[in-house]
């Protein structure tokens, strides 16, 4: 993972920043330069709320090499109030206890590390509500 990519993705990975089209109100996560709905180029920055509803998930048993030590892990899609859907790992819960429709909250976690010496990529994961 290159440092430039880590820095470029900070607005949405760190702060859950989404782009809301100033013309039609469509919300995009992560942000876009041109609205997919109306072609407008001006957006307001909004923050996605911290709690979402799990609409689908799967359990990964054969992950990419950098996630090998985390296997098996769950990957879920949550839908948020703002209308966006976000994909992230579901952690701090046994796979057998994960249920579609459950509320999950976002927590700041390490998402990827570039070996033992490289940059640490931080971002969001889903955890059960406390």
């Amino acid at each position: 993972m290159f440092p430039a990519r880590v820095a470029r993705e900070m607005p949405h990975r760190y702060r859950l920043e989404a782009a809301k089209c100033k013309k039609c109100g469509a919300v995009f996560f992560p942000h876009r330069l041109i609205c997919r709905e109306c072609g407008h180029r001006e957006f307001d920055t909004i923050n996605v709320s911290a709690i979402g509803k799990l609409i689908s998930y799967t359990v990964i048993h054969t992950p990419a090499s950098q996630f090998k030590d985390e296997s098996p892990f769950a990957l879920g899609i949550c839908e948020f109030l703002e209308g966006v859907k976000i994909t992230a790992q579901v952690v701090d819960i046994a796979a057998a206890d994960i249920k579609t429709g459950m509320d999950l909250q976002i927590e700041f976690r390490r998402v990827q590390t570039d070996g033992h010496a490289g940059v640490i990529g931080y971002g969001y994961k889903f955890v059960p509500l406390i």
């Binding site: 976690r109 390490r110 640490i120």
Partner: peptide, 13 residues
């Protein structure tokens, strides 16, 4: 702390 948790992630929460 699980492996994806460190002093920074705890501090942010």
């Amino acid at each position: 702390p699980p492996p994806d948790c460190d002093a920074i992630t705890l501090a942010v929460e």
